[in-house]
Design a protein around this nucleic acid. Structure first.
Lengths: 170, 170
DNA sequence: GCCATCATGTAAAAGGTTACATGATTTT
DNA sequence: AAAATCATGTAACCTTTTACATGATGGC
């Protein structure tokens, strides 16, 4: 279970209310982890009983701002450094590309073109994230990685398109 | 739910018993999808009532070999071509790299080195898969993609290592 | 005063993992 | 004959998603 670690991590970056955490899962972690508020609130309650997070302040509308405790930082650090990475992560795109070969050329073309569009949109999004020279962005490394992977993905997709039986033949 | 589609896909490649399917999930799809036998058997039963798979033959030890029906092929094709890709795939490594910045340089070095080892092992494994020139491998494209992504990953990891505060300073 | 949004929670249903259970065949 | 492996299934538990439910505040 790494929902708790994702929550700890987000709180280590910045204290937040449960509501804000839900938004941050959507904005900055949606490509890697999702959690809706119905998971976040119980998770915070559990982390509190474990002494890993604490309420820093209470605000309007019954809101509570949570922060990570020193014990929470230890737990997070141990997870990141000492624990085994779970490599058996489910990946729907992986399944799709694995089964891709079963499609006839016309369908393959359609799938590839759809994916090229998506990849180009992602590239643009990553580009705008990286382009902010004003602040020294601590996320720069993972954005950079995303851009590099996106680039090879695009290349590969075009190679796959080129490899299709040409529609100029008769 | 794409467990059903993964099962349909594997059966579209080759008819199998439930037991063999479990093994094939482990061998060829473990990087993208896992399913244990306790998931596979009920899934086959469900797919049968839906008319998407059928028993082709019964063998020793009460074993039954399943195949995909024409309706099953339609369902699989529709999923691959017509349905939206679920992009919100959970990715523990993604979370880890996102939170990576929170670690101090010594810990970062440890994590990167561990990851370089893993990536090199993966590269070797992919290389041996791709090196089989004897059969025209229909999985070649996804192996190729895996190799390319692995290569940028390795580059990025070395760049991250180089970017760490040097331990030659005093 | 009404609506949108902020804010927090619980409950039901679906999906997935681990453990339990059993029997048949092959290998040693 | 015992052990390993093939082969299938169910049950309990945990996690995740979707739906239900409610109240507070700020802007119009």
């Amino acid at each position: 279970m790494s929902l708790r670690h994702a929550v700890l991590g987000l709180l280590a970056i910045k204290p937040s209310t449960g509501y804000e955490l839900t938004q941050r899962f959507d904005l900055s972690l949606s490509h890697a982890w999702q959690a809706s508020h119905s998971q976040v609130y119980p998770a915070l309650a559990k982390l509190e009983t474990d002494g890993l997070v604490e309420v820093l302040s209470e605000g309007a509308r019954r809101s509570r701002t949570w922060g990570i405790t020193p014990a929470g930082r230890n737990e997070l650090r141990d997870w990141l450094v000492e624990s085994e990475v779970d490599r058996g992560q489910r990946n729907e795109s992986g399944v799709r590309w694995f089964l891709f070969q079963l499609l006839d050329p016309a369908d393959r073309r359609e799938v590839i073109e759809r994916e090229i569009e998506y990849t180009e949109r992602t590239a643009a999004m990553l580009g705008s994230l990286a382009g902010r020279t004003d602040d020294p962005n601590p996320l720069e490394p993972s954005i950079d990685l995303g851009q590099r992977i996106n680039a090879v993905m695009l290349e590969w997709l075009h190679d796959q398109l080129d490899g299709l039986p040409g529609d100029d033949e008769r």
